[in-house]
Amino acid sequence: MTAICLVGIGKIAVDQHVPAINGSDAWELAATVSRAGTVDGVPAYTDFEQMLAERPDVNVISLCLPPVPRYGYAAKAIAAGRHVMLEKPPGATLAEVHALADMAKAAGVTLYTTWHSRMAEGVAPAKAWLADKEITAAHISWKEDVRRWHPGQNWVFEPGGMGVFDPGSNALSIITEILPMPIHLRSAELFYPSNCDTPIAAQMQWTQNVTGDFDWRQEGPQSWDITVETTQATLNLHDGGARLVIDGVEAVVGPRAEYPALYARMAELVEQGQSEVDLSPMLHVADALTLGKRVMLEPFVL
């Protein structure tokens, strides 16, 4: 088993990363680093540099911090010769992730930019089914309640927090994976509460008749859906890619195991001495922030 350190013990780490690591024969959760969070029975640090110095046995670092501080931690880990796994989105900017990729290559360590929604059970079969189809239209509807998923996490509305594009990047990671042709953004409207630096909602239009509607104000049932229309039939991905429906018939795709699949892939990359850095979802975020028309809203209190 390979010793791994989990940095940033918040909701996503507790809900997803810890169970995925503990359920794998490839990994041992040997340490954590967090200002406040801990995992029972695991040595806990509050200082990352101290952990790196005291734990040379920890070969892999999984970073679950918000995007803005992630670069500094990743750079220190790479400089210390550790392999690095980045929670999505992999950084606050495209340039800093490119820089990390160059550092990892020079140091001979693995860098893995994870996109957990691509590991949803319906995504791979959706990609395979669409591979030879003529696409006529596609639409993303990604709507959830920020208060439910990011309680008290004001960083999501601060510079670098990406706002609704934090969950929206999940949708973008799927659409860029399953479509058999490239798309690029043509226009967008971004909706900003007057007290926030990042958008709470977005409406977008891409080439190839692809549209998207992201919203962080959805109460009640949450919506993570992608519809792709072809000349043969319509494909629907529901529940963030966990359910696949083609021409009204639901496919059998197996149980949800997104984060276990990420850690299995990380184990493969480390063993093979390879990196996997895909920034295509972030390209669409950057384009939206460049092209988007700003629409101002009333203040929003998280």
Rank of each mutant, 00 (worst) to 15 (best):
H238F: 14
D213K: 08
F214I: 09
I246A: 10
L235K: 01
T211F: 07
C196Q: 14
I226M: 07
Y192W: 12
I246F: 04
H238M: 13
I200Y: 02
D197I: 00
L237F: 01
Q232D: 15
V210D: 04
E219T: 15
D247P: 11
C196E: 09
P221E: 05
T230D: 03
E189G: 09
N195L: 04
N209H: 13
A202Q: 06
S223I: 04
S223M: 12
T230Q: 06
N195K: 08
Q218T: 11
Q218I: 02
G212Q: 05
P221Q: 02
G248A: 05
E219F: 12
D247M: 05
R243S: 13
I246L: 15
G240C: 00
P193D: 02
G220Q: 01
A242C: 06
W206S: 03
S223C: 11
A201Y: 03
D247I: 07
D239G: 09
F214W: 10
A233R: 10
G220K: 01
N209K: 14
G240F: 00
G240W: 02
T230S: 08
W206Y: 15
I200F: 02
L235T: 07
T234G: 06
P221L: 00
A242F: 06
T230A: 05
R217E: 10
I200G: 15
P193Q: 00
W216E: 08
Q203L: 12
Q208M: 03
T234N: 02
N236D: 12
R217G: 12
